[in-house]
C-alpha cells in the first residue's frame, strides 16, 4: 500500500517535471536534425516561469470561462497523466486507470479548451475550436477500436492489466497489434496537434488549430495551457510505450531498485519515441485541414481491420 502511494506520488511529480522537458527535447532534436543549434531543452520550463511572473490580460468581454477553463483542463489532463503507467505498474490509482476513462478525461480537457477559445467570440478562436472538435469525431472511434483490440487480447480495458498481459509475452506478435499501433500513432498525432495534422510551431493563424485557441490567453493562463499540452504529449508517448513497448516495467511492490531500473527504461523509451517523432515531423509536411479526416479515417479503417483479424484468429485458435 505504502509502495503504491509512493510510486503514485513519484510518478505524478515526474510527469509534471518531465512534460516541459520532453517538449523542449523534441524542439531541440528537430532543430538539430535540420542543422540548427536549437533552443535548450530547458527552454519550455524557463518560458513557464516567465509566464507565471507576468500579469494575465483578460479581454474586456471575457467571462469566468476564460479564467476557469485552464485550471479545469489542466486538472483533467493531470489526472489522465497520473493514470498512465510510466516506470511502474500497480500505483495507487491503478484500479482507476481505464482506457475509456482516459479517453473521457482527454475529451474533458479538449472541451474546456474549446470553450475557452469561444469565450471572447473572436474569429480564430471559434475556427480553432470547430476544427479541433471536428478532428476528434474521427480520432475517437479509431481510439475506441484500438481499445477494443486490447480489450479482446487482455480481457479488459484496465491499463495495468493490459500492460501485464502484454509484458508476459503470451500474446506474441500480431498483425492486429501492428495495425492498432499504426492507428494509435495517427490518433496520437492528431490529439497532440503534431505535424501532419497541425503545426505546433506555426505563426500563420489561418493554418492554426491548437494555437488558434490560445491567442487570447496570457500570463498564468497561457502557462497552464502550455503545461497542459506538454502533459498531453508526455501522456500519449507514455501510453504508446506502455502498450507497445511494455518490457522492463517495474511492479510497485518490487521496491526502489526495480523502480530505478523501470525509470531508466521509461526515460530511454521516451527519448526513443521523441527521436522518432522528431524525425517523422521533419520528414513530412503539414496536410490541408480537409485531408485530416482522410488521414484519421484511414487510421479508423486500419483499426477496424486489426479488430477483424483478431476475431478471425480467436475464431481459429
Amino acid at each position: 500500500m505504502m509502495a503504491a502511494l509512493l510510486t503514485q506520488a513519484l510518478h505524478l511529480a515526474l510527469m509534471l517535471a518531465l512534460a516541459p522537458l520532453l517538449t523542449g527535447l523534441l524542439r531541440w532534436l528537430k532543430a538539430r536534425m535540420l542543422g540548427r543549434r536549437g533552443p535548450s531543452p530547458l527552454q519550455p520550463w524557463r518560458d513557464l516561469v516567465k509566464l507565471c511572473r507576468k500579469r494575465p490580460v483578460l479581454a474586456e468581454n471575457a467571462s469566468l470561462v476564460t479564467s476557469i477553463a485552464p485550471y479545469a483542463a489542466c486538472a483533467a489532463t493531470l489526472l489522465a497523466a497520473a493514470l498512465v503507467p510510466g516506470f511502474t505498474r500497480g500505483m495507487a490509482l491503478g484500479g482507476l486507470a481505464d482506457l475509456l476513462l482516459l479517453g473521457g478525461l482527454l475529451a474533458l480537457s479538449r472541451a474546456a479548451l474549446a470553450l475557452a477559445a469561444m469565450d471572447i467570440g473572436s474569429a480564430f478562436g471559434g475556427l480553432g475550436a470547430a476544427r479541433e472538435m471536428s478532428f476528434a469525431v474521427f480520432a475517437e472511434p479509431a481510439f475506441l477500436l484500438c481499445v477494443m483490440a486490447f480489450a479482446i487480447l487482455a480481457g479488459g480495458t484496465n491499463l495495468d492489466a493490459i500492460g501485464a498481459a502484454l509484458q508476459d509475452g503470451a500474446l506474441g506478435l500480431r498483425v492486429s497489434l501492428a495495425l492498432a499501433l499504426v492507428a494509435l500513432l495517427a490518433v496520437a498525432l492528431a490529439e497532440n496537434g503534431r505535424i501532419p495534422v497541425d503545426n505546433p510551431a506555426t505563426h500563420l493563424e489561418l493554418t492554426m488549430v491548437h494555437e488558434a485557441m490560445l491567442l487570447e490567453a496570457s500570463g498564468r493562463h497561457l502557462a497552464l495551457w502550455e503545461m497542459q499540452a506538454a502533459l498531453r504529449l508526455l501522456l500519449w508517448l507514455s501510453l504508446l510505450a506502455a502498450l507497445f513497448l511494455p518490457f522492463g516495467m517495474a511492479e510497485a511492490a518490487e521496491g526502489p531498485l526495480a523502480w530505478a531500473q523501470g525509470l531508466g527504461l521509461w526515460l530511454a523509451k521516451l527519448a526513443g519515441l521523441a527521436l522518432a517523432l522528431a524525425g517523422f515531423e521533419n520528414a513530412i509536411a503539414k496536410m490541408r485541414v480537409f485531408r485530416v479526416p482522410e488521414f484519421l479515417g484511414a487510421a479508423l479503417l486500419l483499426a477496424l481491420l486489426g479488430v477483424v483479424f483478431l476475431f478471425l484468429s480467436t475464431g481459429l485458435a
Binding site: 506478435l173 501492428a178 483479424f309 485458435a317
Partner: peptide, 28 residues
Amino acid sequence: MSFGQIPYDVAHLLGGGMLLSGFVLLYQ
C-alpha cells in the same frame, strides 16, 4: 503452430506488414 510461437508470429506480422503497405499504396 498457433499464436505465441515465434514462426507463426513473425510470418503473420510480415504478411500483415505487406497488407499495411498495400493500404498505404491505396492511400498515397
